[in-house]
Design a protein around this nucleic acid. Structure first.
Length: 444
DNA sequence: TCTGGGGTCCTAGGACCC
DNA sequence: TCTGGGGTCCTAGGACCC
């Protein structure tokens, strides 16, 4: 039997932990760049504001001017998430952290009553210790557990916010009332395809022949159908934190045409990818850079392009990765276009322990590795991003907007002090500049 | 004026091989 | 003139997730 614990309106709930005056008010948390709503309080949902709604359209909803908009602070949310996962881990078997606000775990095939009591206590404990409301559903498969937690969250009469779907009758009843696109694994496209065949709810979907399901979607859709029928068919690789790709990208605060400003951003992204690689004790062998214009601006010519470079050896050095990322960037940058977004992705990621030192470049490797370790140590001791590659020390033109950071308690300031936007003032980069940076900073 | 970021998996089709 | 069949690998693009 699987359970899914799901935090309600997670980012908004986190903001409310530190600012209870937001309780019972319509609140949304905005994406990077203050672009669109990525979390909504129940009050904001009740006003009809959809997920992903652009921030500038919110005021046009009835009572939309009352909505409180907040810039996202992911460092804060990650910290609260860790606390919740720790509490879950204390009682849950085989915890699988699926996302920042969701985790699956196993519950015994005991009586429903026993599980319900145990999970109700867990929900209350998380609310008491962390202050974030959580819903839990349990069922024979993860997909059904997800539906159960969703129903538990929405039902105002379910004060415990715990629901078990364990009997064929209860499962059928809920599936008949579950819209097809509310099923985990069925998105916009598959919803259209299924609706066109007259499939409106999850129960009807379970009745389709398997061959047809395979034709409409792919093997994943077949798995989803089996899950709804109670057959365990999907797995979560949350245990495997070894990423296959690591990406860092941003939409800029406004369009940019200057090459230097975009290359500064590229270096920043490359550096962030390298830091994450080192945190995961892994290396990457290839790096991809992409740039794109603003597809909402009909008045500007649109250009987008990407370039992948296979590096001579696997590395987690910020300087190595930034060097190759700049080469890739130089090959795709075109003068005369306005750019709105850029990013760096590293691929072919392997564990650093299996990485063999290149016989000809061993000395460089050791030098880089020691330098990077020193940087990680200093950043760990004195705060993130205290040491950075030289071009990214000052806040660039490319920095996204973040105009709705809320002030408040001291705790809040402590957290926002960890925000990348406010810690770029340090100037310790000279050491790096002397050591290595000049080798390739001269290109541009 | 203003529309996010970071992932995974699957499939079709091309290139290439024997 | 006639020009196979089967396999692998890679990549781009599509679909999904939070």
């Amino acid at each position: 039997m699987y359970a899914l614990a799901d935090c309600n309106n997670f980012f908004v709930s986190c903001e409310r932990v530190f600012n209870p005056s937001l309780n019972s008010l319509p609140v949304v948390v905005l994406s990077n760049n203050d672009g669109c709503a990525i979390a909504r309080s129940n009050e904001a949902k009740a006003l009809g504001i959809p997920m992903g709604c652009p921030a500038f359209k919110i005021k046009d909803f009835p009572h939309g001017d009352k909505v409180i908009m907040l810039s996202a602070r992911h460092v804060l949310y990650r910290d609260i998430s860790n606390r919740i996962m720790t509490l879950l881990g204390e009682v849950a078997q085989e915890l699988e952290i699926y996302s920042v606000d969701e985790a699956f775990f196993k519950v015994p095939n005991d009586s429903d009553e026993h599980n319900r009591m145990m999970l109700t206590k867990l929900v209350a404990n998380i609310e008491r210790c962390v202050g974030v409301p959580v819903s839990i559903g349990f069922a024979p498969t993860r997909t059904l557990a997800k539906i159960a937690s969703h129903v538990a969250k929405k039902d105002p009469n379910n004060k415990a916010r715990v629901l078990g779907l364990t009997t064929p009758d209860s499962i059928e009843d809920v599936l008949r009332h579950t819209k097809i696109d509310d099923v985990w694994g069925i998105g916009r496209r598959l919803n259209i395809k299924l609706l066109s065949r007259g499939v409106h709810d999850a129960y009807m979907f379970t009745k389709l022949p398997r061959s047809l399901v395979q034709r409409i979607g792919n093997i994943n859709l077949v798995r989803t159908q089996q899950e709804l029928m109670g057959i365990d068919s999907v797995t979560i690789n949350s245990v495997d934190i070894n990423h296959k790709t690591i990406m860092n990208s941003r939409t800029f605060g406004h369009v940019i045409s200057k090459k230097r400003e975009i290359s500064d951003a590229i270096i920043y992204f490359a550096q962030a990818c390298a830091t994450q690689l080192r945190q995961e004790n892994s290396t990457a062998q290839s790096v991809m850079v992409y740039v794109r214009g603003d597809h909402f601006r009909q008045d500007l010519p649109f250009y987008h392009n990407s370039c992948t470079i296979r590096m001579p050896r696997p590395t987690a050095s910020a300087m190595e990765i930034a060097k190759h990322a700049l080469t890739a960037f130089n090959s795709i940058f075109r003068e005369g276009f306005q750019y709105r977004k850029a990013g760096v992705m590293v691929n072919e990621i392997k564990s650093a322990s299996v990485h063999q030192l290149d016989i000809f470049n061993g000395q460089d490797d050791v030098k880089h590795s020691r330098l990077m370790n020193a940087i990680d140590e200093i950043n760990k001791r004195y705060g993130t991003k205290k040491i950075m590659l030289a071009p990214t020390i000052t806040k660039g033109e490319w920095a996204p907007h973040q105009n709705h950071l809320s002030g408040g308690s001291k705790t809040l300031k402590f957290y926002s002090g960890m925000n990348p936007q406010s810690t770029l003032e340090c100037t310790v980069a000279k050491a790096i500049e002397k050591e290595e940076w000049q080798d390739f900073a001269q290109d541009d």
